[in-house]
Simulated scan of single mutants.
Amino acid sequence: MSLHRAAASVWRVQGSSNITQQILKCTRWQLEETTDFITCPYRYYCDSAYHGDYAPAVGALVAAFAAYCLLSAAAFTVLEIRRDGAAAASRRRKYLVPSGPFLLPLVLLALAKGHRIDAVFPLAQLGPALLLTLQASALAFRNEADGDLRYAVLEASTVSGILHASLYLDAVVLPYYTGTDALRWSRFSGECATCLCRMEPLIVGGTTVLYRGLSKTALAIIFALCSRMVCRIYGEERLSAWTRSALEAASWVFVAGDAVYLAVLATAEGAAANVAVYALVAGLVFLCIFAKVYKFLGWMETKQLHWKPSVSCHNVV
């Protein structure tokens, strides 16, 4: 049973799906004083207004956009593995991948308005998939630019975009996770529509789901992109190159960990659509990792071929 259905089933006993939505979308909980320290030591009520969701057509557009982001990232990853038209693809892909200067603002717009997108592609449940796609795209595809200044602007905009996307996602999912915990582990006091009695304090983000948008994954990616920018502007010195490679490798480990965690969580919840989405995103992440490993092995093979003749010539001399 998914978190949303579990929360809804709890409130159906109480009476109204509108109140369920208000609790799941609540962004500000107030703690009231209580005199019943035995059965209601913590009393909360929602102190924020819920303005309703956008039309299902908006959710359908977001779903189509998310599908395009996933497919474009996968397609360019396959092109990099095959190395067909790599030069032309590298010039075009910045306009077509999620982390590019054209699509990144659309990702930010979707996440910024995600609090009211609950039909077809509910971002409270599927928003992490969109952020993971953006993160994988930023790591897999480097920004291409002629001059250092233009490159620095593009890379800085990508870093800023990932930071803002992480914050926007947290603004969507944290109220949802908090509301889910509130519905699961509380009872309604009856004093108001959202008045709850709890035996334990209500924690922001809840305790059921550990995923966060602004986490070590986002910070590692930001540091990795900044190291790319430093290496591009100041040169690929040995220390800076190894630092960049280590940061990128750590970022891929964190992204893969998040993808696996969310896929397992979706499987445990049992919602088929969520399972499919997170399985596809996890597949994209591991496809990108495979492409990086494949290119690294090819680079090692090329370097070894160039190194062997020099050794043999040295031995002859």
Rank of each mutant, 00 (worst) to 15 (best):
Y54F: 11
V78Q: 04
D148G: 15
P101K: 00
L79F: 10
R82K: 05
S240R: 12
L70Q: 12
G270D: 08
A60V: 00
G190F: 00
C231E: 02
V230E: 14
L225V: 04
K308H: 05
A282D: 07
L214Y: 12
Y176I: 11
A263D: 08
G213S: 13
L219S: 15
L71V: 03
L262Q: 09
D118E: 04
A119V: 03
L265P: 01
R12Q: 08
L214A: 14
A145K: 11
T302E: 15
L132H: 05
M229A: 04
R150Q: 13
A6D: 01
P128F: 07
T34Y: 02
A64T: 04
R116H: 15
L111G: 06
G213R: 10
D118L: 03
G190P: 04
A124S: 13
R5E: 15
P101Q: 02
Q22I: 05
G283R: 08
C231W: 00
N274C: 06
L79R: 10
G213E: 06
R184K: 06
W252C: 12
I81W: 09
Y54G: 01
A250G: 02
A268I: 08
S17F: 05
V10K: 08
A152Q: 00
E32R: 08
Y42L: 09
V277D: 09
L109I: 01
D118N: 06
A64Y: 00
S16G: 03
C26M: 06
A273Q: 06
T133W: 01
G15Q: 04
C288E: 14
L196K: 01
A291M: 08
V10Y: 02
L96M: 14
T35I: 02
R28P: 00
A145N: 12
A67L: 09
L131M: 05
A88E: 13
G235M: 10
A271Y: 06
S157D: 12
L134Y: 02
L239G: 01
V78D: 09
V78F: 12
L70F: 11
Y176E: 09
A73T: 13
R228G: 14
E200G: 01
D181I: 05
D36S: 08
L210S: 15
A193D: 14
Q14L: 10
A119M: 04
A75H: 02
C226Y: 00
S245V: 02
K216P: 05
S227E: 12
S48G: 07
V62W: 11
D84A: 13
V230N: 11
K295S: 15
P101H: 03
V253L: 13
S9I: 03
I117M: 12
K308C: 03
C69K: 03
F254P: 11
R12A: 13
R12W: 00
P309C: 00
R91Q: 12
S310M: 09
W242Q: 12
A220V: 05
G257R: 07
G114K: 13
Q21N: 11
S16D: 10
A263Y: 08
K25P: 00
A129G: 14
Y95C: 00
